[in-house]
Amino acid sequence: SLNIVTVTLNMERHHFLGISIVGQSNDRGDGGIYIGSIMKGGAVAADGRIEPGDMLLQVNDVNFENMSNDDAVRVLREIVSQTGPISLTVAKC
């Protein structure tokens, strides 16, 4: 069973999320979106629970499971540009 973790980040303390995301597209185009790298000083690094290779399932109320990489990057950028905490739900691989 997948270990699902939801992390809520206070964006007032850390001014950027600090992750890159990578799409693992397979033949069907539904390989999922994964955490690529984590930048020091960002909210994700400070929290420490999300790691490279984790699968990104949801951000706030947006489901990322069947999203293309381009869409995921765009949607994540829109969410980060808003104010307030950000909740990331990942599956630990």
Rank of each mutant, 00 (worst) to 15 (best):
residue 93 C to I: 01
residue 18 G to Y: 00
residue 29 G to F: 08
residue 61 D to N: 09
residue 89 T to R: 11
residue 12 E to I: 05
residue 30 D to E: 14
residue 72 A to R: 02
residue 17 L to Y: 01
residue 29 G to S: 14
residue 62 V to S: 09
residue 30 D to G: 06
residue 71 D to E: 13
residue 87 S to M: 11
residue 71 D to Y: 07
residue 93 C to W: 02
residue 67 M to L: 14
residue 31 G to P: 15
residue 80 V to Y: 08
residue 70 D to R: 09
residue 92 K to P: 03
residue 7 V to R: 06
residue 58 Q to V: 13
residue 69 N to P: 14
residue 84 G to K: 05
residue 5 V to H: 03
residue 78 E to T: 11
residue 18 G to W: 00
residue 9 L to G: 00
residue 73 V to L: 08
residue 63 N to S: 12
residue 62 V to A: 09
residue 65 E to F: 04
residue 8 T to N: 07
residue 32 G to H: 11
residue 63 N to R: 11
residue 85 P to I: 14
residue 17 L to F: 02
residue 75 V to C: 09
residue 13 R to L: 12
residue 91 A to C: 06
residue 4 I to G: 03
residue 4 I to L: 07
residue 30 D to F: 06
residue 30 D to I: 06
residue 6 T to H: 09
residue 31 G to D: 15
residue 82 Q to C: 15
residue 64 F to T: 12
residue 12 E to D: 08
residue 65 E to L: 02
residue 13 R to I: 11
residue 69 N to M: 10
residue 11 M to C: 09
residue 67 M to A: 11
residue 82 Q to D: 11
residue 63 N to M: 07
residue 80 V to H: 08
residue 1 S to K: 13
residue 23 G to P: 15
residue 54 D to Q: 02
residue 55 M to R: 05
residue 66 N to H: 13
residue 87 S to Q: 08
residue 63 N to P: 08
residue 88 L to F: 05
residue 91 A to L: 07
residue 56 L to R: 02
residue 67 M to Q: 05
residue 54 D to Y: 00
residue 80 V to I: 12
residue 56 L to E: 00
residue 83 T to K: 12
residue 78 E to K: 04
residue 90 V to T: 06
residue 63 N to E: 11
residue 78 E to R: 09
residue 1 S to A: 04
residue 87 S to K: 12
residue 89 T to I: 09
residue 8 T to V: 07
residue 57 L to K: 12
residue 13 R to H: 10
residue 93 C to S: 13
residue 2 L to T: 12
residue 44 V to F: 04
residue 12 E to P: 10
residue 70 D to K: 05
residue 82 Q to F: 05
residue 65 E to C: 04
residue 55 M to E: 12
residue 65 E to R: 09
residue 65 E to D: 09
residue 22 V to Y: 08
residue 73 V to R: 15
residue 72 A to N: 02
residue 82 Q to H: 13
residue 4 I to Y: 05
residue 55 M to L: 11
residue 38 I to F: 02
residue 86 I to M: 07
residue 76 L to D: 01
residue 84 G to T: 12
residue 58 Q to F: 08
residue 70 D to V: 05
residue 29 G to L: 13
residue 74 R to E: 08
residue 68 S to L: 09
residue 55 M to K: 05
residue 93 C to G: 15
residue 63 N to F: 08
residue 1 S to F: 07
residue 61 D to G: 09
residue 3 N to Y: 04
residue 58 Q to Y: 14
residue 61 D to L: 03
residue 79 I to P: 07
residue 6 T to C: 09
residue 75 V to A: 09
residue 88 L to P: 00
residue 8 T to M: 10
residue 6 T to L: 03
residue 84 G to Y: 06
residue 67 M to Y: 12
residue 89 T to C: 15
residue 75 V to N: 13
residue 62 V to P: 00
residue 7 V to M: 08
residue 61 D to E: 10
residue 63 N to Y: 11
residue 12 E to H: 05
residue 74 R to Y: 07
residue 68 S to F: 12
residue 5 V to S: 07
residue 68 S to M: 10
residue 69 N to F: 04
residue 76 L to A: 14
residue 89 T to A: 13
residue 84 G to C: 05
residue 80 V to W: 15
residue 58 Q to G: 06
residue 85 P to H: 13
residue 12 E to C: 08
residue 3 N to S: 04
residue 80 V to P: 15
residue 1 S to N: 14
residue 69 N to R: 12
residue 90 V to C: 15
residue 15 H to P: 03
residue 79 I to E: 01
residue 48 G to V: 15
residue 86 I to G: 01
residue 87 S to I: 05
residue 72 A to G: 15
residue 74 R to N: 13
residue 62 V to E: 03
residue 57 L to Y: 06
residue 92 K to L: 02
residue 65 E to G: 04
residue 65 E to H: 12
residue 82 Q to V: 15
residue 32 G to I: 04
residue 22 V to M: 14
residue 92 K to A: 07
residue 47 D to E: 03
residue 78 E to N: 05
residue 55 M to Y: 12
residue 32 G to N: 06
residue 17 L to Q: 01
residue 9 L to E: 01
residue 74 R to H: 06
residue 74 R to G: 12
residue 77 R to Y: 03
residue 68 S to K: 06
residue 15 H to R: 04
residue 60 N to T: 01
residue 11 M to Y: 10
residue 81 S to T: 11
residue 12 E to L: 08
residue 90 V to S: 01
residue 59 V to M: 13
residue 53 G to D: 15
residue 32 G to F: 05
residue 90 V to D: 01
residue 66 N to S: 07
residue 6 T to S: 13
residue 58 Q to L: 12
residue 71 D to C: 15
residue 83 T to D: 15
residue 5 V to G: 02
residue 3 N to M: 03
residue 64 F to S: 00
residue 78 E to I: 13
residue 86 I to A: 02
residue 66 N to I: 06
residue 67 M to F: 09
residue 57 L to A: 02
residue 88 L to Q: 01
residue 73 V to S: 15
residue 9 L to I: 11
residue 75 V to F: 08
residue 76 L to M: 07
residue 79 I to Y: 05
residue 85 P to S: 13
residue 78 E to Q: 05
residue 84 G to W: 03
residue 4 I to W: 04
residue 79 I to S: 10
residue 55 M to T: 11
residue 63 N to W: 03
residue 76 L to H: 00
residue 55 M to I: 12
residue 59 V to Q: 00
residue 5 V to F: 13
residue 5 V to A: 09
residue 31 G to N: 10
residue 57 L to S: 03
residue 73 V to T: 13
residue 75 V to H: 06
residue 81 S to W: 09
residue 69 N to H: 13
residue 12 E to R: 07
residue 68 S to T: 12
residue 61 D to R: 07
residue 93 C to D: 11
residue 18 G to Q: 02
residue 54 D to C: 07
residue 55 M to V: 12
residue 67 M to E: 04
residue 84 G to P: 08
residue 70 D to H: 08
residue 84 G to N: 06
residue 92 K to M: 02
residue 85 P to A: 13
residue 73 V to Y: 10
residue 81 S to A: 10
residue 68 S to W: 03
